[in-house]
Design a protein around this nucleic acid. Sequence first.
DNA 1: CATTTAAGGTACGTTGCTGTATCTAATGCG
DNA 2: CGCATTAGATACAGCAACGTACCTTAAATG
Lengths: 211, 211
Amino acid sequence: MAPNHERIAAEHRGVGASRRRGAELEDAILDAAWEVLIEHGYHGFTYEAVAARAGTSRPVLYRRWPQRGDLLLATLSAFWQPIAVPETGGLRDDAIGFLRNANADRAPTITLMSVQLVDYFRDTGTSFSQLRDTILPPGRESAFETIVARAVGRGELPDVPRSPRVVNLPFDLLRHDLLTTMRAVPDESIVEIVDGVWLPLLGVSGAPSSG
Amino acid sequence: MAPNHERIAAEHRGVGASRRRGAELEDAILDAAWEVLIEHGYHGFTYEAVAARAGTSRPVLYRRWPQRGDLLLATLSAFWQPIAVPETGGLRDDAIGFLRNANADRAPTITLMSVQLVDYFRDTGTSFSQLRDTILPPGRESAFETIVARAVGRGELPDVPRSPRVVNLPFDLLRHDLLTTMRAVPDESIVEIVDGVWLPLLGVSGAPSSG
DNA sequence: CATTTAAGGTACGTTGCTGTATCTAATGCG
DNA sequence: CGCATTAGATACAGCAACGTACCTTAAATG
């Protein structure tokens, strides 16, 4: 008859804290869900595991998200943030800086996003690209479109049409490496992508050191 | 007391055939395993499903492959084939032809290989690249290394050092598109990769039509 | 033909997760 | 305070797959 259950749950959220409600509880659950997703992938992303990690019980989750996909979407929407685009005043540094940010931010998660979620994609018949469009506000300029536009504005690049493929090439290559190696890309790869591939393709001299 | 079981299993391998053994049985199992893997991914790649598809029983599988990873490795090794490199006599056509082959061959499987298998990668701490090295004989020249070397031999390209990243760029981009869209890449993308990215980067004029 | 090997079927207990139902007690609000 | 809400615990049946044990019978071997 002693309130043993409450004490157990309280351990998960710190001694002295009492029963959570509403947004506070929801945030705690989504935090837990995100951690589970990162650590164990979509396969381990079970109501059981999320509830345990959040220090609550499965019915609480079922009340809010009846389907696993609902919980997944809510979790991703809460944590998927756009990557910061640095503004260094130079095309090369903007590109390298952005790729470094992306590498740091996405290394733990992009493998998750497009890879761990395949079971979800399979179940729903969707794909990574589609999910991305669902989560992110559509019609937004991509980071490299911004970077190139700035360089054109500065006169660093000629104002000629460029295909999205060429503009976004660095990010695609970074993503490719992230996906196939499933870990953060070494910094030399980032420099190589920019100096050895992208800048030459844009007709810019390339690395400042090697001419 | 009637040999009912035998009759049931026989249905899966055609009437009149009797009990399979050794290599014959093993091949049939790997065929079934491959089909299951393609259709249901690693998640659905269970002893249960493979045994059922092969018309045999789980103990038969456990005797040969005690771990699920063993069965997976055996299956992939049996079915992972190198992609044909066409020999057209021209750099551009070699590249486009190879990418078309890769697109056709890998569209159903590369999403599987690097994407469906993440649970396996997670369990074993490996990655797509490592698995590839395990399956394929190492030290082999890549397809695009061959293609470039031929072009150099013909005098179509200057004999200068080129980074593996530049040489293999088209395949990496194709793979990127396959991974993120999870379906075959449209032919225009292949042409765009070669004419709009790779050939300009190599210092070749690009598409024959647009100048 | 006799013997050994192994395929094939069946059964069992176990595990992990699913949904749902039910109960309690804490919280917020009037 | 009194009431409605709902967090949190627990229990249940169900399912799918696991891994193993066992028995039989077919095929290979001598």
